[in-house]
Design a protein around this nucleic acid. Structure first.
Lengths: 176, 208
DNA sequence: ACATTACTTTAGAAAGC
DNA sequence: GCTTTAAAAAGTAATGT
């Protein structure tokens, strides 16, 4: 929001919020439906996490503002929303040979003593994928939904081309 | 130009001072870990590269030294966990791991994926097991790898379970507790890996 | 020997130390 | 760098019954 906010006043009048400026400069506001969590700053900027889709995110932002107004917080104008990060999970339904993939892929890190997934930094689209031997993975760092689908298709094709995949079933995907 | 020379000399002397202190640390930690000279030398080489690239700025010398030692062990296939190395520093495992990742990303150090078999030798000798058992454990791990059972799992836990099985089959049984302790994993992990290995590889274990 | 809870990794923004 | 928030993946760890 393009305006400054009095977080102390919000902490007094809005129920179920957490605000401890010594610990963190943002006020924590949790919305039950859609289930998201928001960090609200005195600059009027806020971070909203946990939304499962863009539609859900927009709905959540509207409800957060409506809720704040209901408790007497004066907020004017429309919020400008930017998607900063999309986190998604996908399942390729195959078994992945991570040792081989670690050897053949370029920007990767695979340290099974620290974390079971292979971390792959893709240049285009610019995302990071956590790939597991089960064929499931996590895609993060995307700003648009189509980047997620593009990245999943790309890594699947690449792993297949490098012969790092052992068939178990089919192909599929999801979004958070 | 004088100024240029002065700046160069100043930078060089700061690198020298840093290196001198780091080499002492490296020697100290390396000896506590019982590492051979070749591993310490390799660690020194990696550390020198890091200083020259300015990667030590804002970080403790000690944690970067520890990370360099870990990278060296991995390159030389000397089985040492991050925890074992970090215990001799004031930094925790997380900080040393962070430095290690930095070294991997910023320097051209090639580190192979750690092989559970490297842990077999260390765990086996610490437990005083026979060469035959260690060889058998290595064979079990090779089979496990070939059927895709090892991906994503902690090499130390896999090695511990393979040792447990091998020792049982060779009638020089060690308890899961003993093995877990020297391997640096919990009994639960040894048990989980053990169950999976005997089931998937169809290994017959006689009772008791 | 089980279960439950919690931590490891990844990205990104916010304001301030 | 750190602090806080959320979510997924699979492995390991700590604690409880």
């Amino acid at each position: 929001m393009e305006q400054t906010l009095d977080l102390y006043a919000m902490e007094r009048s809005v129920p179920n919020v957490e605000y401890d400026p010594d610990q963190f400069p943002g006020l924590i506001f949790r919305l039950e439906s859609p289930k998201v969590t928001s960090l609200i700053f005195k600059s009027g900027k806020m971070v909203v996490t946990g939304a499962k889709s863009t539609e859900e995110l927009i709905k959540a932002v509207k409800r957060i503002i409506k809720s704040l107004r209901r408790y007497g917080i004066r907020i004017g104008g429309k919020p400008k929303i930017q998607i900063q990060n999309i986190v998604a999970s996908a399942n390729m339904h195959v078994h992945v040979n991570l040792d081989k993939a670690a050897f053949l892929l370029e920007n990767n890190m695979y340290e099974p003593e620290q974390f079971p997934g292979l971390i792959f930094r893709m240049d285009e689209p610019r995302v990071v994928l956590l790939i597991f031997s089960s064929g499931k993975m996590v895609i993060t760092g995307a700003k648009r939904e189509d980047e997620v689908y593009k990245a999943v298709k790309k890594i699947f094709d690449k792993l297949e081309e490098l012969d790092c995949i052992k068939a178990v079933e089919e192909e599929e995907e999801l979004e958070i | 130009r004088w100024r240029k020379w002065q700046i160069r000399a100043r930078i060089q002397s700061s690198i020298d001072r840093n290196l001198a202190q780091a080499m002492n640390e490296l020697e100290r930690i390396g000896n506590l870990l019982g590492l051979p000279k070749s591993v310490k030398d390799e660690g020194a080489l990696i550390y020198r590269k890091a200083v020259e690239k300015g990667l030590v700025r804002g970080r403790s010398i000690e944690s970067v030294v520890a990370a360099a030692i870990y990278a060296s062990c991995r390159r030389m296939k000397i089985a040492r966990t991050l925890d074992e190395i970090a215990q001799y520093t004031k930094a925790n495992r997380k900080e040393v791991a962070r430095c290690y990742r930095l070294l991997l990303r910023e320097l051209n150090v090639d580190v192979p994926v750690s092989d559970p078999k490297d842990y077999v030798t260390r765990i086996g000798s610490l437990l005083g097991l026979s060469g035959a058992s260690m060889k058998l454990a290595a064979e079990i791990l090779e089979k496990a790898k070939n059927v895709g059972l090892t991906a994503g799992k902690d090499p130390a836990g896999l090695a511990a379970a393979a040792i447990y099985i091998a020792a049982l089959l060779n009638e020089e049984r060690r308890t899961q507790k003993e093995i877990a302790q020297v391997a640096g994993v919990t009994e639960v992990t040894v048990r989980n890996r053990y169950k999976e290995l005997i089931q998937e590889l169809k290994i017959e274990i006689q009772n008791q």
